[in-house]
Nucleic acid binder design. Structure first.
Lengths: 328, 328
DNA sequence: ACTTGTTCTACAATCGTTTGCACAAACCGT
DNA sequence: ACGGTTTGTGCAAACGATTGTAGAACAAGT
């Protein structure tokens, strides 16, 4: 049904190789031949078969993207940035959502190898040696995860966290709680570390709870434990948790921000809707997705991209969920 | 670097075809040969090259999925359902987000053809004839869109809308506003039609505003126009718009549900977070995603799946944003 | 021992491209 | 008009698998 290069060749009265060249290296052909071939091609509705191309050239024009959970609102903008940029570069992207299961992660990767020109691994929990092994086979870019020797694109929330601490300290808060995200998460480690550093610098008290799954429900649970502490402010690993906290605090009769201040992270939901609107560290997800693809595409070319970490800083966005510490 | 079938063959002392059969039709081989081949294969870390397989068999083990906007929270659960089920069936999925741009839609499809065994088109705006043409080339399943002759999986919100109308009528509401979604959307047409039917049956007044883009911002805008009408209840095309409406009504000093009742659709965000919690028609997105893949995979086999519409009903979930109509 | 029949494996063609190489035609200056 | 460059095309061999067909090996029936 679908036209092949040979049919186009026959129709144009040339050989198959000429047809191939009309597409891949047009300047090798005489103008007349090229236009004749292209005419024949459009008449037949010919499109090069990417699978066949892939077999001989070894380049498929696809990239594989792996996220822990596409239903986590952090990832869709990332995916959007990536797919959009990929489309611009004439590439398609495979998407797999591993549900945080290493087995599924490995399986998805195995399915994609040899069908893709590169891999985009987002917040992956796979161990360093697996990653380096993978990267030896296939250009690989990490997102929100580092691994020695591998290029990574990172949402840098450290400065945002510093600003959050400063903001809270300026409002008289003395004790902070951090609600940890997933144990193996690079983002979580970075956020916790930044908080640790800056609370110490400011002489504030920091309690770390968790780890929790990054979900609304986990936030609900965590809120109760927050109330057990003497802390007046809580920073959550992400917005979903923060919203859960907000909701549960409301249920428990604690007023935000009068009794407790709450800070989220990522800014991926329309935060105006939460009551009170959530103060959060905003992450430039879409930009990161695009940058990751760019890095992958660049590294794929001549020089193997030296394993640079590209960081995109998040910004503290102050809304209504933070305010002066209550007097005690 | 990567082992080929020939290297395995040489190592096992058999021919390439035997290696191939060891994987694809093991019962044709003597047990001894088969185990020997498999041993050699694992030693070399051999995995069949799906691109090469695809070229000869014509089956790639991939499916292509097209959504209008992956950043719209309706789609991630859908994608999750689809990718998860696909992974179970040893298939990978291409994802493209068209940003509602027909050009990009067409382009993404073109890139994927010949690389996929089937297409999953979600809420696509492409015209019927394009779709039938596409389906002639490639097994195609529609999601939240119908087209004569094509199988479709649909979120059926009609009954949910009926329940919403009944619910509002029971609370004494006499005038309703519907905030339309995108003009070409099947879901929008279905929702509008269901509202039209059931408001008429109940003798209620229905005003249709829009079309609007399905976004928070559009909801904010729409809220002002809602206040210009005499309606006491508003049904929004989706939750994002409804949340925008909620937010703007709050700004304008209108109280929900005391002054105005608000109903959303889809139930894809943690709705507990909105104040008041949003009454909405819940859509079983993940189930639909899975069902769509199943249908595609089934149709791909022997009998071309007869173009059935599979409908999954949404359920009205009553929360705090709806209540008795104000006395006038 | 010779046919007949099984069972297993190898050969070779094929899928739709790309691409190095050879070769023909046209062009140049002399 | 003639060697020597260009320039433009065709041939054929890959790429890594699948699969129809044919033949080797062996067992059994007569």
């Amino acid at each position: 049904m679908a036209a092949t290069i040979h049919e186009v060749a026959r129709r144009a009265g040339v050989s198959a190789s000429t047809v191939s060249r009309a597409f891949s290296s047009p300047d090798l052909l005489r103008e007349a031949t090229r236009t004749a071939v292209l005419a024949a091609a459009t008449e037949l509705g010919y499109t090069p078969n990417r699978v066949a191309q892939g077999l001989v050239t070894g380049r498929t024009g696809n990239i594989g993207m792996l996220v822990p959970d596409i239903a986590n609102p952090f990832f869709p903008p990332l995916v959007k940035g990536a797919t959009n940029h990929a489309l611009g570069a004439d590439m398609s992207v495979f998407l797999a959502s591993s549900d945080l299961d290493p087995t599924r992660e490995a399986r998805a990767v195995r399915q994609m190898t040899r069908q893709v020109d590169g891999l985009l691994l987002c917040s992956t929990q796979l161990p360093d040696d697996t990653l380096t092994a993978l990267a030896a086979e296939l250009p690989t870019v990490l997102v929100n995860r580092t691994c020695p020797g591998l290029p990574a694109v990172l949402v840098d929330t450290a400065s945002g966290m510093r600003d959050a601490v400063d903001h809270l300290a300026a409002h008289g808060h003395r004790g902070l709680v951090y609600l940890s995200g997933p144990a193996g998460s690079w983002s979580n480690a970075q956020r916790r570390h930044a908080l640790r550093t800056h609370t110490r610098r400011r002489g504030l008290d920091l309690t770390v709870l968790g780890p929790y799954l990054p979900s609304y429900e986990a936030g609900v649970q965590a809120a109760d434990r927050v109330l057990d502490t003497r802390a007046t402010a809580v920073v959550a690993y992400d917005d979903q948790m923060a919203l859960g906290v907000l909701s549960r605090l409301h249920e428990r009769g604690a007023s935000v921000p009068a009794d407790v201040s709450v800070v989220g992270c990522d800014d991926v939901l329309p935060m105006g809707l939460a009551r009170p609107a959530l103060t959060t560290v905003s992450a430039p997800c879409e930009v990161v997705g695009r940058a990751a693809v760019e890095l992958l595409l660049a590294g794929r070319g001549g020089a193997p991209a030296r394993p640079t970490d590209t960081r995109y800083p998040g910004q503290l966005v102050v809304r209504a969920s933070t305010g002066p510490a209550p007097r005690r």
